[in-house]
């Protein structure tokens, strides 16, 4: 048999394997109705979570605006602006984060892998930014505390303890944000390595 004849010969082994494969052997257990219900439920849950995040952001913006408009001092104005900015950022980040899960872009597999690498890098940058701004946030909270405590210590000692608790909570929040950022950094570093490995496998000759 010539080489040409061999090439034209129907790939019977492969056809057999292909028909065997398409027997739906792995799909027999699928309950389609249950699957559809479950997917609709999950989609609804995701939308509700996003709506909740936006609601919290909106409340944050309103509170920030009230503080900004009600008080005249530099400190309250700064608190108002920071609250508004943080709330808007939270709303935007929630949307951006979920959009990736909601919408699988119409791209090739390789493009999806590239996108995952970009996402992991962006997430690492975000974690770094959080970590680098944490010392500044601590300094800001400390200065704000010193500034306000001067008024309260002598004029209203009972409010001083409330103020101390408030700033203590702010510090706890910052420390928690630092811990979360480290975890987020490590996790995304691992993700980045994984996707880079996949990319490496795909581009292997």
């Amino acid at each position: 048999m010539t080489q040409e004849n061999q090439q034209n010969k129907p790939d019977l082994d492969w056809q057999e394997m292909s028909s065997l494969w398409q027997q739906d052997g792995f799909a027999n257990d699928l309950n389609m109705d249950q699957l559809a219900t479950s997917i609709k439920r999950k989609a609804l849950q995701m939308k509700m979570m996003l709506a909740l995040e936006w609601l919290i952001s909106l409340v944050g913006v309103i509170v920030g605006l009230l503080v900004y408009l009600k008080y005249d001092s530099l400190f309250e104005t700064a608190v108002g602006i920071v609250t508004i900015a943080a709330s808007l950022f939270m709303g935007w980040f929630g949307y951006k984060n979920r959009r990736n899960t909601w919408q699988a872009k119409d791209e090739t597999f390789s493009a999806m892998v590239d996108l995952s690498i970009k996402r992991a890098k962006a997430a690492i940058s975000y974690a770094k930014m959080n970590l680098y701004t944490a010392p500044m946030a601590i300094i800001f909270v400390k200065l704000a505390y010193d500034h306000r405590s001067k008024d309260f210590d002598t004029m209203a000692p009972e409010k001083a303890s409330n103020l101390q608790m408030l700033f203590g909570l702010a510090m706890v929040f910052i420390v928690a944000a630092v811990i979360w950022s480290i975890w987020y950094w490590v996790r995304n570093k691992r993700n980045l390595n994984y996707w880079l490995e996949i990319k490496g496998q795909l581009t292997e000759k």
């Binding site: 699957l35 997917i39 999950k42 909601w102 919408q103 699988a104």
Partner: peptide, 11 residues
């Protein structure tokens, strides 16, 4: 499978 279907549907 659910995850894929969800991604397909929403995408």
């Amino acid at each position: 499978v659910q995850e894929v279907l969800l991604a397909v549907w929403q995408g």
